[in-house]
Write a protein that binds this DNA or RNA. Structure first.
Lengths: 96, 96
DNA sequence: AGCCATCTTATCTTTATCAGTAAAATGGCG
DNA sequence: CGCCATTTTACTGATAAAGATAAGATGGCT
């Protein structure tokens, strides 16, 4: 359980994106028109082959009418949204 | 209330990033070493002048030991983390 | 099999991120 | 005021994102 900065973050985001689009029965073409992002670009993002910019993800989230955060969290642990706090008594400088 | 895709999303993310870094008393140099992202790049991101890639934000979040979602949500409405559902009975195709 | 919608992949061009470096602000603090 | 740490800004060059377009691949359906 070394967690190495989330191995397949892009693939995960892509999967969620595709699921959300499917929920609204939208084609890549339609989402492309809604977002201003080309269908090929959307395809690459959904298949986890492209490292999109923040505003690009924001446009897609806006078009799908969901908060951006939805794309980044596992709907499973979405319940514990109080689980934040950076582990009190920790000093990152110890690792420099 | 036209929402125009959040005009200052980058500035907001940058502010939260800077606050988190301040909480741990890290300099840009130190965070740069932790993330592998240069200090100038971090400065641009924190000041809302750069549209960072998803993996870049992920690296920073990992170094600060907070979930990525923390950078994107307003701590104010962080309470209502069940508020998702894309407004049932809506069809985005009506706007194409 | 053939057609059709949808998605994927490839190529090209423009633009932007990012590392690296160095040079200017900024801000304490003695 | 002059140091000094920190941050910002301004370059360079390499890598990658994103639009546009076109060409394959996939899958359903009669």
């Amino acid at each position: 359980m070394t967690m190495e900065i989330e191995p397949n973050l892009l693939a995960d985001v892509g999967r969620r994106l595709r699921a959300l689009r499917a929920d609204q029965d939208l084609t890549l073409e339609q989402l492309a028109r809604l977002t201003g992002i080309s269908a090929p670009a959307l395809s690459l993002i959904e298949t986890g082959k492209r490292d999109a910019r923040l505003t690009t993800l924001a446009k897609i989230a806006a078009a799908l009418r969901v908060p951006i955060r939805t794309l980044l969290e596992d709907p499973a642990d979405a319940a514990s949204t109080g689980g934040d706090v950076p582990a009190e008594g920790y000093d990152l400088r110890d690792y420099l």
